[in-house]
């Protein structure tokens, strides 16, 4: 054979091998791709599609209405309240939750005997389901026998209808939520703290700087990638809150806790208004997308990576 024939034969073998690699790779990925396709990408597209239709109670699209579902939403007070409740809920839970988890993580990152016990205590809520936690907080918020009103009574302050007063309901749910989410954020932040190179602290000790200086100049900057991650996850989680609302307030009183996912649920499965629910779902998707993209845009510039 000539060189050219040899090379052609080689190319042929290589092409066959590349094809076999492709087939193997796709075979390994196929189960995941299939499920993502059926249970994530398809329904996402379908949601967008449904949001442009009027549907019957089974969710079958009947009349194409274009942007009407969205226009109706923006004009409805109910949706405005829901959007406001969601925004407030995010505002109440995310910053406070992260500050709390960071503080706990810094506390638990000391080298003390028995520190493992405290780490376990701080991370305990990670093992708690939303349903179980909600039931416990329901009891704590109980106006007559709950702990909070008992404490107020002991201080001679009149009791509060925590979950029944539109003024307090969202705040109450937020407090419970912060507690529920602490465990996860704590675990990740503690991991982030433990990844910081100890020699940085040793050289700071030799330089003799104060604890708060160390916190501002070493701990927080070095922790920033972790904080960045936790913030993104917390924001997205806050947008997706459902369980505690369903169990504690059912979106009430006076829709004051009717956050977006609960509103979608109610429209789709209780009011059978699938078109409106889908339109809200699209808005939820956009909100999460914007948050993620913003986080990455800001994060890329500001976060200090090791």
């Amino acid at each position: 054979m000539t060189t050219i024939q040899h090379e052609l034969a080689d190319r042929h073998v290589e092409r066959k091998r590349a094809w076999s690699n492709w087939a193997t790779g796709m075979l390994f990925l196929l189960p995941s791709l299939l499920l993502f396709g059926v249970f994530l990408f398809y329904p996402m597209v379908r949601t967008v599609y449904l949001s442009l239709f009027l549907t019957d109670s089974q969710g079958v699209p009947i009349v194409f209405v274009g942007w009407e579902n969205f226009l109706n939403l923006f004009q409805s007070t109910s949706f405005q309240i829901s959007a406001k409740a969601t925004a407030l809920f995010v505002l109440y839970t995310v910053p406070a939750g992260i500050v709390l988890a960071t503080a706990l993580a810094i506390l638990a990152n000391q080298k003390l005997r028995g520190i493992g016990l405290f780490r376990t205590m701080f991370s305990a809520t990670m093992g708690m389901s939303v349903a179980a936690s909600s039931v416990i907080w329901m009891f704590l918020f109980n106006p007559s026998i709950g702990l909070f009103n008992r404490i107020l009574a002991a201080l001679n302050i009149p009791g509060v209808q925590w979950l029944l007063d539109p003024q307090y309901a969202l705040l109450s749910v937020s407090i419970a939520t912060i507690w529920m989410n602490t465990g996860f954020a704590f675990l990740i932040l503690l991991g982030g703290l433990q990844n910081i190179d100890q020699s940085l602290y040793e050289s700071a000790r030799i330089a003799g700087v104060s604890e708060s200086y160390k916190l501002r100049k070493i701990t927080l900057p070095m922790l920033s990638p972790t904080l960045f991650f936790v913030t993104t996850v917390s924001l997205i989680n806050a947008f997706q809150t459902f369980g505690q609302i369903d169990l504690l307030t059912k979106g009430g009183p006076m829709e004051s806790t009717n956050v977006i996912v609960y509103s979608i649920y109610k429209d789709a499965f209780i009011n059978y208004n699938v078109g409106s629910a889908s339109a809200q779902a699209v808005l939820l998707f956009v909100a999460v997308l914007v948050v993620t993209v913003l986080q990455f845009k800001i994060g890329e510039r500001k976060v200090h990576y090791q």
């Binding site: 996402m44 949601t47 459902f242 979608i264 649920y265 998707f285």
Partner: peptide, 27 residues
């Protein structure tokens, strides 16, 4: 496994993290 289109599929996987599961619950 190195194969053509792997990068692309990887981005597809990343993009799934941007879809909130709750937004797809009706379909």
């Amino acid at each position: 496994v190195e194969f053509k289109g792997r990068e692309w599929i990887f981005y597809l996987f990343i993009s799934t993290m941007m879809i909130p599961w709750e937004a797809t619950m009706v379909p």
